[in-house]
Design a binder for these strands. Structure first.
Lengths: 344, 344
DNA sequence: TTGTACGCGTTATCAA
DNA sequence: TTGATAACGCGTACAA
């Protein structure tokens, strides 16, 4: 563990010179430069970041808080963040909080402790006002999830508009008995998607049916999507379309529908949300609302570095979504609807 | 950003006393203790870890290097590591290296730079001898993948024995035309599973058929599993069983087999490897070799902390695997084999 | 262009 | 039980 003074001694210069050479300042003679670099190599010198960080009061590290590692939706975002941070010369360290507020706050406290320059949050599992206080002291970006009135820089799609797009597609296909497979969490995205669904129904003059809104588990598990769909299909008047707020839920819905003897999309249409890679594994190919996951990550990272460098960046970054129509959605079965009188 | 001397001044004590109180040393009067804790609260003081780490020469951080975030197999391991580190009062920071040696080495260099106390590697993407040098200087644990002659502490299952177990199952079902769907990487696990397959064939006196060994992509992608299976099934004498070295590949194989008009398991048996959660999403349920993923993570973390604390820990930790027989494997179709003369 | 010397915030040793 | 003070390794203002 050679230190900078070891290097200086061996090269016959002062530590100031070594520091200047290593930080790439131009004011050094090629000769001294060489001497320094040679003794760095000979002594196998490496910077002590604790000392450097202490002196400079910054770390070159950003923290990413993710509620879990299993959701492929997060995987793309994380990759986008990591690539961007790497390109910008920082390290992106991912903390798996497991949706545990204690672990989230402990991770964020590391900003106060000078162990990171900023953080990106992929979920809201900390108290909102606490978080706001926090963001006023430190660079913070929220990705995907944020409170409607948030004063924290955030990056996401317009979930309500996206929900309208899904509904427009299903309505255009003649569906009127449309169910909404939501999730048992309080994420703003969940709320917005439900709101978009309800608004679209109202605009189409379709009476909302309370039984048509069901919820899978908080983490959108496949199994819970299957269960919820079975309840839906056991109704006296089952829906002819199910709008799922995640692809995993939709995959559960597909399996459940098959088990219940429904053909997809002839008897029932099913749509997903996110467009994650696992979709390819299922038949029929899923119609879904695609989020630009990787770009969400890239944009979040760029925004965070802007904050860190005291550059200006918008409070809200809204990225474009788009509907990907594949095989799991089709015209409503004839005679299924009491409103459209037999769509064809 | 109050410092320890601010706290000391406000409490009317020395910084040494503050430090002692905060590090929980018993040699302090309850009265001074209270004074100190009160001014800590009033000033909203937080430890500066850069300074602390510099002085103590350790960080309370471990680094996890993962080649990607999308593979659910890694997700469980990462969760096991994270839970264990949290329980032991350390932070587990995950670095996504994307299988890029530059990113891997950059991450590991942080050990030299005193920014972490140790590291767990989930893949081998750094030069082996470089890694060995490294491990002699720093606490290092390899999880899942390690060189056969490795001198680095490692945690994994016995892949060759596991391979034998899969083969025993298929042989017992009367299969003799058994294909091996491998992956286009040089991971030791990949090599060991192939070796087990070949040994088992030899022990059963079955002539190996070179066309029966095919490879999917390096990262076991679903699509590559599908493609490889199509080639397999287009052979003049297609196999009656496919032993896939990952569940994702197996899921691709299932879809391909169906597309080619094969019934599973009546016409062809397909087995996976790992037993990751996404398996539940596919019909028929996959027969697979289950790895104790979460425990692999826990064990790796424990081993690493043992190294960090200079306790002894075995060089090799071998965890138990087991075959989970579900619906995708069954007796070889009658008359399919030229060896068994019509298994039933 | 280079060197001296101080300070970053802690922890730990020693003496009181 | 407490306080003064030296170190940890580095960056930089200032002087040369």
């Amino acid at each position: 563990m050679a230190t900078i003074s070891d290097v200086a001694a061996r090269a016959g210069v002062s530590i100031a010179t070594v520091s200047r050479v290593l930080s790439g300042q131009p004011c050094t003679t090629p000769a001294t430069r060489d001497k320094v670099l040679r003794s760095v190599a000979e002594l196998n010198y490496h910077l002590n970041r604790s000392a450097s960080n202490l002196r400079r009061n910054q770390t070159g590290v950003i923290l990413i808080l993710t509620p879990n590692m299993t959701n492929p939706y997060y995987a793309s975002i994380l990759t986008g963040i990591g690539d961007t941070a790497t390109a910008l010369g920082s390290a992106a360290f991912i903390c798996n909080t497991r949706d545990d507020p204690n672990r989230s706050t402990a991770a964020l406290e590391r900003l106060r402790q000078h162990q990171a320059d900023g953080a990106i949050l992929l979920s809201i599992d900390a108290d909102a006002t606490w978080l706001a206080d926090y963001a006023s002291d430190f660079p913070l970006v929220q990705c995907s999830e944020f409170q409607p009135d948030s004063t924290i820089t955030h990056v996401a799609i317009d979930n309500k508009a996206a929900s309208h797009d899904v509904m427009a597609h299903l309505l255009e296909l003649g569906h009127t008995r449309i169910a909404h497979l939501s999730a048992d969490n309080t994420y703003p995205s969940t709320r917005d998607r439900l709101a978009g669904y309800q608004e679209a129904l109202a605009q189409a003059n379709i009476d909302p049916c309370p039984e048509y809104v069901v919820r899978g588990s908080a983490d959108y598990s496949f199994a819970s999507g299957k269960d919820a769909t079975h309840t839906l299909l056991a109704l006296p008047k089952p829906p002819t379309a199910i709008f799922c707020i995640s692809d995993t839920l939709a995959m559960g819905a597909v399996v459940a529908a098959r088990e219940a003897g429904f053909n997809i999309p002839a008897d029932i249409s099913i749509t997903g949300f996110d467009d994650v890679a696992v979709n390819e594994m299922i038949q029929p190919q899923l119609t879904t609302l695609a989020q630009p996951c990787y770009e969400l990550g890239v944009t979040s990272a760029r925004a965070l570095f802007a904050l860190i460098n005291h550059e200006t960046t918008p409070l809200a970054h809204v990225l474009d979504h788009h509907l990907v129509v594949r095989q799991s959605s089709a015209k409503a079965p004839a005679g299924a609807s009491e409103h459209s009188g037999g769509a064809r």
